[in-house]
């Protein structure tokens, strides 16, 4: 709001807002703190904050006990791969819907979103069998395809909303200037939509990174990403809090860092392009 606020009022709202933000963030913070404590300190009662005994041992242990780099690499390949593949299929579709809308466009978009409403568990067995049959079970390419299909409706929807912000006259100008469809998309539409495409990519990489159902159902060892890595750590419950926290931190750290560095695009992306 354009209105001036008194410093006192601003201080009070700052205090309130930061308290709320810290409460929301606290579980993540607590997990990170716990990951640096010794196991004894992690379960101490009353809980230890500054007086805890700090250590890096949990990370060393998690690193040596599991093949973190492989899980990490699988996560990168699967999340980035599925997003890029999705983009290739979604850009033409979003172009059509945004610039050549028909009576059915809205319905088509809603139908695409509705495919996401099918509970994953409901089709788990058929998909599992299909993947076995196609020979892409426990392979990175299989997960790239599965997660691409999971996120395709979201990618199409986001691109559609971003494309719609681009005035159709500019594409018509390109047509008048002698550009064919391919040149129109490559030289005019895509460069203009870069911010929207970046947000779309970012959000879908995160969604794919955090996907934990198909990644666990469709892998055993070879293609297992970090979501499977963490699942294997949470199995022996209760006792190893510090190590569990360290493993958890390692699983979410890459995306946390990526997200914080690209906050602006992400915030735009998080709204799915649906709200301005």
């Amino acid at each position: 709001m354009a209105r001036a606020t008194t410093p006192r009022r601003k201080a009070l709202t700052t205090l309130a807002a930061w308290s709320v933000a810290l409460i929301i963030f606290f579980p993540v913070l607590w997990m990170i703190l716990t990951s640096f404590k010794t196991e004894a300190s992690a379960v101490a009662s009353p809980p230890e904050f500054l007086g805890a005994s700090w250590t890096l041992e949990n990370y060393a242990e998690v690193w040596s006990r599991s093949d973190y780099p492989r899980f990490f690499w699988n996560s990168v390949v699967i999340s980035v791969g599925s997003t890029l593949l999705g983009l290739v299929i979604a850009i033409p579709a979003a172009w059509s819907m945004a610039f050549v809308p028909g009576k059915k466009t809205k319905d088509l978009l809603m139908w695409m979103l509705s495919t996401k409403m099918m509970p994953a568990v409901a089709v788990m067995i058929p998909i599992y069998l299909l993947f076995q049959w196609l020979g892409i079970y426990d392979s990175k390419i299989g997960l790239v395809i599965a997660l691409m299909l999971m996120n395709l409706p979201i990618i199409v929807w986001m691109l559609y909303t971003y494309f719609k912000e681009i005035p159709g006259e500019i594409l018509e100008a390109a047509r008048m200037d002698g550009a064919g469809l391919w040149n129109e998309v490559v030289y005019v539409l895509a460069p203009m939509a870069v911010p929207g495409i970046a947000s779309t990519v970012l959000l879908n990489v995160i969604l794919a990174w955090n996907e934990a159902f198909w990644t666990i159902t469709l892998t055993t060892t070879k293609a297992a990403p970090l979501s499977a890595f963490i699942a294997s750590f949470s199995a022996p419950q209760g006792l190893f809090y510090a190590k569990l926290s360290a493993a958890s931190t390692m699983a979410i750290a890459p995306i946390l860092i990526l997200g914080w560095f690209s906050q602006k695009q992400l915030v735009r992306g998080l709204t799915f392009g649906a709200v301005k």
């Binding site: 963030f25 993540v28 997990m31 955090n210 970090l226 979501s227 963490i230 949470s234 979410i252 946390l256």
Partner: peptide, 19 residues
């Protein structure tokens, strides 16, 4: 405020359950 969104569901569930 947006941090929880970066936490994958199995991690979120296990932080809350255990810690």
């Amino acid at each position: 405020v947006i941090a929880p969104f970066f936490v994958m569901p199995p991690v979120a569930a296990s932080i809350w359950e255990n810690l």
